[in-house]
């Protein structure tokens, strides 16, 4: 018997487990949108270059277009639909709304998922390519505009709403610290 090119998998998305059968070629992005109807995650370039499809996998941001659904089994996936706490928007969502961190909105779900992770990565002491001294005993760097621009560089916005996006991420980062 030739090896099967389809797989029965269970995907854990936004706290719910979904059992489905997928062609092994199915990306996590397509499984989310086409099989599970979670269309908040957007398909932009489909080649890992634009960040529109960014989701959180076990709390870490990842592009869902280059992840195979079959390989995502066992990960805890959070999409834009799972970022808010019920009706209470996440501080990043609030900040994007208040500071107009978008124009057309197509890249926004990816921007927001990415920003949620950026704030966590920075709080955990992760350096970036904008960090002058990466040595572990160096002074921690603030999440300033240069750091935000570098850390968010995997999320493209063809409307060019970057100025407001940077402000929104900075605002959300400050508010997260206050409430933490």
């Amino acid at each position: 018997m030739p090896p099967t090119t389809r797989s029965d998998i269970s995907l854990r998305v936004n706290g719910e487990t979904h059992v489905l059968t997928v062609d092994n070629r199915t990306t996590l992005l397509d499984a989310l949108r086409e099989n599970l109807g979670l269309t908040g995650t957007k398909k932009g370039c489909d080649h890992g270059q634009c960040g529109a499809c960014t989701v959180l996998a076990d709390g870490r941001r990842a592009v869902s277009c280059l992840q195979l659904a079959v390989a995502a089994e066992g990960s805890d996936i959070t999409t834009i639909e799972g970022i808010a706490d019920g009706e209470d928007l996440h501080p990043v969502q609030e900040a994007f709304l208040e500071l107009d961190g978008y124009q057309c909105g197509y890249c926004t779900p990816g921007q927001i998922c990415s920003a949620v992770a950026v704030i966590k990565e920075h709080a955990a002491g992760w350096p970036s390519a904008a960090t002058a001294d990466v040595r572990p005993d160096a002074e921690p760097v603030p999440l300033d505009a240069a750091e935000i621009r570098e850390r968010m560089s995997g999320n493209l916005c063809r409307c060019g709403a970057y100025t407001a996006i940077v402000r929104a991420v900075a605002r959300a980062s400050d508010e997260t610290k206050v409430t933490a």
Binding site: S128, A129, R135, G154
Partner: peptide
């Protein structure tokens, strides 16, 4: 690799090189 304290202490250029590549979403995977 890039954020590991011993990489950043002993081979900072390696940490910087990895951080200079791709995007946060890709480096995580």
């Amino acid at each position: 690799l890039a954020v590991h304290p011993e990489v950043r202490r002993r081979f900072p250029a390696l940490s910087q090189a990895v951080l200079a590549g791709a995007s946060g979403q890709l480096r995580n995977v």
